[in-house]
Structures are given as C-alpha cells and as structure tokens.
Design a protein around this nucleic acid. Structure first.
Lengths: 206, 206
DNA sequence: CGTGATCTTGACCGAATGGTCAAAGAATAA
DNA sequence: TTATTCTTTGACCATTCGGTCAAGATCACG
C-alpha cells in the first residue's frame, strides 16, 4: 500500500494540529455544529490553509472516525479467552472506564455519531464491530456454560459495560452537576468494580 | 399565572404539530443539524407560518426541553421511601427502560443536550435535578444503612440506572447492528432486572 | 545563491439558513 | 353581510458557511 510521498515536517505538524483541533470542536459541537473556520482557528491556521491539508470538513471528520474505531475496540479485543473470566471482564471494564477519563473527547465524538444514527460508520458497526462482539460473546457464553461466571446474556453484558463506562465521559456535565464538588471519577472505579463483580460472580455451589 | 388568551383550535393543532415535528428533527439531527425549513416541512407548514407560532428555532427547542425535564424525572420522583427497597428500585429501572422504548426521541434530545455540555438546561441540572437526586440518594443511603440493600454509592447507583436504561434508546442503532435480527428490547428487561437484582440484593446473613 | 516545490492567505463565490414583512386568505362574531 | 381578528404565504434580506483561486511568502536543495 503506497501512502504517497513522505510528509514534510510542516505537513506532519499541521495535520496533527488540525486533527487535534477538530477532535475538540467536533466532540463538543457535533458535526453540523462545528465550522471549518472554528477548527482552523483552534488549530492556529487560516481556513484556506486548513483546506490545503484536508479537502473538506467531512474528510477531517472521516479521518478522526477512521482512527477511532480501532482505538475504541482495542480493550474488547484484548479480552483473553484463556484468562480468568472474572479478571478478564473486570480488566475490560476498568480499561474502558480509564478511556472515559483519559479520552472523553473521543467518547463524545463516537456518541455523537451513534446518536445521529451512525450515518458514517454504520457499515463498520455491522461489519467489524458485530464480528468482534460475536467472537467475544461466544467466549463469554462459554464461560457461562462452564459455570465460571453467573448466567447472563453475553451481548447485553457487553452493552452494559459500554453504557456504564462511556456514561462517565458522555454525561460528565450531568454527573458533575449532581455530585457538586465530588469528582465523578473518585468513586467510579470502585463502583463499577463492585457492580460487575456482583453481577458476574457465580452463585456459591454446594 | 396568566397564560394569556385561550388558544384557538388551529393554534392548539399547529403548536402540537410543530412540537411533534421538532422532536423528530431535533432528536435525530441535533440542534445545529436541524433546520427551521425541515421542521416546518415535517409539521406540514411553511417556514413563515411556523415562525408565526414560535418566534425562533431556539424557542421551539426550549419549549421541548422545558416539558422534557419533568417527564424525565417523574420515575425517580415516584421512588417511594416507604416501599420495599428492592422492589422500588427495580420498578424505577423498569420504568426508565420502558421510557427508552416508548420515548426514544425524548431520550436522544436529552442526550444531545448533555453531550453539548447542557448549554440550555445546565441551570436545571444543578438546581432541580441535583435536589431530587440528593433527596433520593439519602433514601437509598438509609436503605443501605439498614442493611436492606447491599452497600453501594447511592449517586453512582442512580448513574448506573440512567446509563444502562438510556443506552437502549440513545445507542439503539449500535445495539441493533450488534444483535442483527434480535430486537434489543426482547431481552433487555430481563437483563437489567437480573443486573440490578444481583447488585442490590444484600448478602445473606447468618 | 537561485530555482522549483511547498505553504499561506486575502478576496471571493454560491448555497443554505434563520428570520422579516406586507399583503392576501380564512375564520369568526356582530 | 360586514368588520375584525386570526392565519398563511411568496418574496425578500442579512449572515453564515463550505469551498475556490490566484498570487504571494517561505522553504528545501543543488
């Protein structure tokens, strides 16, 4: 795969600055709410200059989303079928929660896209995402069948992990409004740990 | 409180049609993505005619949000301090899940607003919402102190109920992509019931 | 240097968008 | 019927926005 001539130092710097600025703006304002002028200003460039590096507003957005899906699915990919079920799933939960704290803009960009009906990544959801979830759901179903975790619907378990962890990024404003001075992430790790531990721990036999 | 002259039959019909159409459009496209022309068309009116009933696009949006918060908080308000803790909380969860199925547009409108940083209802979040959550969190904390439900952080419990149930409305496209033919709402009620039952049931004493 | 490639920008364009207005068209009550 | 109010609309306006272009500035390299 030829990716063309090697990028200039200026190209590398400006492309990165544009994507960084675009992530800020798109995640905060949504695709329609964002303006090319706004992104350019945030990147410290003039609008025509920005359009010298990316052909259109949509191209910037696409570039962001393209890089995002892999990043987003990496924690689930890392779920090891041969590891300890409870540990593996809790590690997944914690990785996802950490991403909500460290990468809230990416989470909101993704949430915006889904909320609008996934017009740009619907294909990837039905392909790449579904395939990965199918694979990992089978792993979880196996654990359930072996009695190593409590019985539950594997895909809905994954949904619950997504919703709970991403909620801490996407609804951060609301969480902070409710908690007042308390930082949402102070107790979030312990809470999600407790929640999924109680959900997954198989009933004591004997 | 004088609300002015009684509305004409035509006024009642058209105002309702506008709000209905606006809910469709705003929830699907977001505030910036929605156009006055689009809302007018969906309501079966011309743009100037729509603007005869509402002074601006923002006014329509505000009218929707104003009515929404009360609707949204009603299930939590209904949580009875004197009822059975587990039953009360599970009933709350089920009511919220039902709202995600029956009122997905309202859920997405709300999610859009929060995602954008709650520019229009931030005040209400820090006032009305916080007050209600404070009140109900105290109730839950009381139940915990009495050992009637398993120990957990009351506000994060509420967050988890919100996130899990609203996820079924806000991320519906993603859920359907993952599940293929299976309707997300087929197994959702049983799943959330199981989840919160295991989370809340106090450990057997003895 | 100088020369060609890369980078930047002010000025501009067409389309979309929120909103206005005057005047025409119903509905309504006397 | 008529006078009055309520409703609807075509035409229009100012602004914003995505995007173009030609010309100038800067850089890399022989």
């Amino acid at each position: 795969m030829d990716t063309g001539p090697a990028p200039t130092r200026i190209q590398a710097r400006n492309r990165a600055a544009i994507l960084e600025a675009a992530l800020d703006v798109f995640s905060a304002q949504g695709f329609r709410g964002a303006t090319v002028d706004g992104i350019a200003a945030a990147a410290g460039l003039s609008k025509p200059n920005l359009l010298y590096y990316f052909p259109s507003k949509e191209a910037i957005h696409d570039a962001l989303l393209a890089g995002l899906l892999d990043l987003w699915l990496a924690p689930l990919r890392a779920l090891d079928p041969h590891g300890d079920p409870l540990e593996e799933l809790l590690a997944y939960v914690h990785r996802k929660l950490e991403m909500s704290r460290e990468l809230p803009r990416e989470s909101r960009l993704f949430a915006n896209e889904i909320l609008q009906g996934a017009p740009r990544i619907g294909q990837a959801l039905e392909g790449e995402l579904k395939a990965l979830v199918d694979e990992k759901a089978a792993v979880i179903a196996g654990w359930v069948a072996q009695g190593r975790i409590a019985p539950l619907h594997p895909r809905h378990l994954i949904f619950s992990i997504w919703s709970l962890t991403q909620h801490y990024a996407d609804f951060d404003v609301q969480n902070r409004a409710v908690l007042g001075d308390e930082d949402p992430f102070t107790h979030a790790p312990a809470f999600v740990d407790t929640l999924f531990r109680r959900l997954l721990t198989p009933p004591a036999t004997g």
